[in-house]
């Protein structure tokens, strides 16, 4: 396995506050890597640094061996990295199909409109939105909007997905269905970097886990190692629910 994404010594400060510093990790082809850490650890910032929403102050982001550090988000999308947002960002007045078509048109393949529509239909069906293609995105339920985020990212036919708390705000049934969808995405060979607060879910899903604390890497390893890592447990002591769930308890 070769590294698909390699983050090297990444750093970013906001007005003197160091959000991320000295962070390095890799994601291999076909792998699911979980990014966890307490609130404010800098997880979403890492996503924004990878896909170019923020330009890093230090370090490099390498994708498929090429340097993509500081490239604009639309160029990063063209390279084949797609993402979802923690706070859903639908194109509100456009329909579900149109939302996905935007993803397909401007994603990795840069498809013409008529071919993008077919890809978009397929992606919408993949996440289970095929019966709501003509519905304006604003009218979807929150679970529907979460699915739309995923369908739109998939429409880009990416090599890698950045999933930012896809499970937040969903009920137990919806979480189960979303996990199924994520597993079948991996089965397609798409690498996934995932931020998630539900420990049970991310422990079950990930091949490897990177733990962030105050913008720095605290630990990295297989889920089982992470769950027994004393440093990780200590970092989470301020958050007993999380610490308990690391040991295989119920989701927080």
């Amino acid at each position: 396995m070769s590294a698909l994404l390699a983050v090297e010594d990444l750093g970013k400060s906001f007005g003197g506050l160091r959000a991320v510093s000295g962070l390095s990790f890799t994601v291999n082809e076909g792998e699911i890597v979980g990014l966890i850490g307490p609130n404010g650890a800098g997880k979403s910032t890492v996503f924004n640094l990878i896909n170019g929403v923020f330009v890093p102050d230090a370090g490099r982001v390498q994708f498929r061996g090429g340097n993509i550090t500081g490239e604009t988000p639309y160029r990063v999308a063209r390279h084949g990295i797609a993402r979802t947002h923690q706070v859903v960002q639908p194109l509100a007045e456009l329909t579900v199909l149109e939302n996905c078509t935007v993803g397909a048109c401007f994603g990795r393949e840069n498809l013409p409109l008529y071919r993008a529509r077919a890809v978009a239909r397929e992606a919408a069906a993949f996440v289970g939105l095929e019966d709501r293609l003509a519905m304006p995105a604003a009218q979807l339920t929150i679970a529907g909007k979460k699915r739309l985020e995923l369908a739109r990212a998939l429409s880009a036919q990416p090599l890698m997905l950045l999933l930012d708390e896809e499970l937040a705000g969903l009920n137990a049934t919806e979480i189960e269905r979303m996990l199924e969808v994520i597993r079948s995405i991996r089965a397609r060979g798409i690498a996934i970097l995932i931020i998630e607060h539900l420990m049970q879910a991310i422990m079950g899903l990930s091949d490897r886990i990177v733990v962030l604390n105050s913008g720095q890497k605290l630990a990295e390893g297989a889920p089982a190692e992470i769950a027994n890592n004393p440093a990780v447990i200590e970092a989470y002591l301020g958050d007993p629910a999380l610490a308990a769930s690391l040991h295989g308890g119920a989701p927080a």
Partner: peptide
């Protein structure tokens, strides 16, 4: 009716999201 127009409309709806989706705004 064009891809260009779809990109513009995406920008009009939510420019940040459009850019992340790959629209060269």
């Amino acid at each position: 009716s064009s891809k260009f127009g779809l990109g513009l409309i995406a920008i009009g709806q939510n420019e940040d999201a459009a850019v992340v989706l790959g629209v060269p705004a």
